[in-house]
Structures are given as C-alpha cells and as structure tokens.
Computed example of a mutant assay.
Amino acid sequence: MQVNDPMIKENQERMAKTEDALRRELGKIRAGRANASLLNQVMVNYYGAPTPLNQMAQITVPEARVLLVNPYDKSSLKDVEHALLAANLGISPANDGDVIRLVIPQLTEERRKEIAKEVKAKAEEAKVAIRNIRRDIMDALKKSEKDGELTEDDLHDLEDVAQKVTDQSIKNIDAIRAEKEKEILEG
C-alpha cells in the first residue's frame, strides 16, 4: 500500500519491523524440521571472542531433519560443539571429527500442539504491538488536527489510511502465523 503522509509512512515502517521481529522469533521455534535459522543465536568462543556460529561455519540442511555444521577452521570444532551444547537447543551435537551433525527429533502430536499455541501467543503479541502503533498514529493525527495542522476532513481521510495500513499488517501477521503453524503441524 502506497502511503504519502510521512507520519503514517513512519508508523507503517514500525509495523513492518514488528512483522520482521515476529518472523525472526518464530524462526527460533523448532518445528521438527531442520532450519539453519535455529542456530542464528549461537555464539562460539573463538580465540577468546564471542563469534556468531553462522560467521565461522557453513550450515547446511542435507536432509529434512539434519543440520550439518562445517566449521571453516577445523581447529574450532570443539569450541563449536561446546557452544551448541551451551545454547541449550535440546539437540545433542554429533561430532565426527570433521563436521557436526544435529539431528532434529521428531515431535509428538502433543508437543506440536503446544508449539502451535506458543506460535499463536507470539502472533497475538505482535498484533497488540501493531494496535499500539495504530493508537500512536491516531493520537498524533488528532493532535495535528487540534493544533490546526490538519482539517477535520484530512483527519478522517488519514485515519482511514492508518486503519487500512493496520488491517494489512494484521493480515500479514496472520499469514506468518498460519505458515508457521502449518510447518509445525505437518512436521
């Protein structure tokens, strides 16, 4: 949706950032399928400096439920293994001296439903954040009208645009949630 008003445009960007944050948050949730983003938060103590795992190793998905971590520097294999254990992912790393394999365990039906509830809760949090942004927009527009910067007609037009932007963002969040729930429930 093309928006011309700078105030609404700024808040539309805030809504997009909320959607991106939800995607990142849901990316951390293990769905019974191998996903390299599961390791995005893993930090390895590499020569005394905390280094993101994805910057010091190639992470591939050779099979649906297997992550393969291939460090660029083979001498760091033990450090990578310790970092994976410390990350508390619920997955035991298998070190064969060359690469580390992480086999994602199959989820039970009960666990899938629990995770789906968690996804739904995170999506609701994101919707609340979107509604708070809309409230900020509406308050700012009313203040502008009160200060004489906007006419009453302009106020109503901009409120309509703000509502459409909000509705689109809520729709996007529902789509993100539905996609993750499908991934989890299909396994």
Rank of each mutant, 00 (worst) to 15 (best):
L26S: 03
K28M: 04
A31Q: 03
A31G: 15
G32T: 08
G32C: 07
R33Q: 14
N35S: 15
N35T: 08
A36Q: 09
A36K: 10
S37H: 12
L38F: 07
M43V: 11
V44I: 05
Y47N: 14
P50L: 07
P52L: 06
P52R: 10
L53M: 10
L53F: 13
L53A: 06
Q55F: 03
M56L: 15
Q58N: 14
Q58C: 01
I59M: 02
I59P: 01
V61K: 13
V61C: 05
P62M: 10
R65S: 15
V66S: 07
V66K: 11
L68V: 11
P71A: 14
P71T: 14
Y72H: 12
Y72W: 15
D73P: 08
D73N: 09
K74P: 15
L77E: 06
K78H: 11
K78W: 00
D79A: 15
V80T: 07
E81M: 13
H82I: 14
A83M: 04
A83S: 08
L84Y: 11
L85Q: 12
A86E: 12
A86M: 03
A86C: 00
A86V: 01
N88P: 01
G90P: 11
I91Q: 12
S92W: 00
P93R: 09
P93Y: 07
A94G: 01
N95C: 09
N95Q: 06
N95E: 05
D96G: 10
G97E: 13
G97M: 14
G97A: 13
V99K: 03
I104L: 12
I104P: 07
I104C: 09
P105A: 09
L107M: 13
E110W: 11
R111W: 04
R112W: 05
R112E: 01
R112C: 04
K113G: 04
K113F: 08
E114N: 06
E114Y: 08
E114T: 02
I115K: 08
K117P: 10
E118I: 12
K120N: 15
A121Q: 15
A123Y: 03
E124M: 11
E125H: 06
A126L: 02
A126I: 02
K127S: 11
K127I: 08
A129I: 00
I130G: 03
I130D: 02
I130M: 06
N132W: 04
I133S: 11
I133P: 01
R134Y: 09
D136N: 13
D136T: 06
I137N: 11
I137K: 05
I137D: 10
M138Y: 12
D139L: 10
D139H: 09
D139F: 03
D139N: 14
A140G: 08
L141D: 10
S144Y: 02
S144W: 00
E145D: 08
E145K: 05
E145T: 02
G148I: 10
T151W: 13
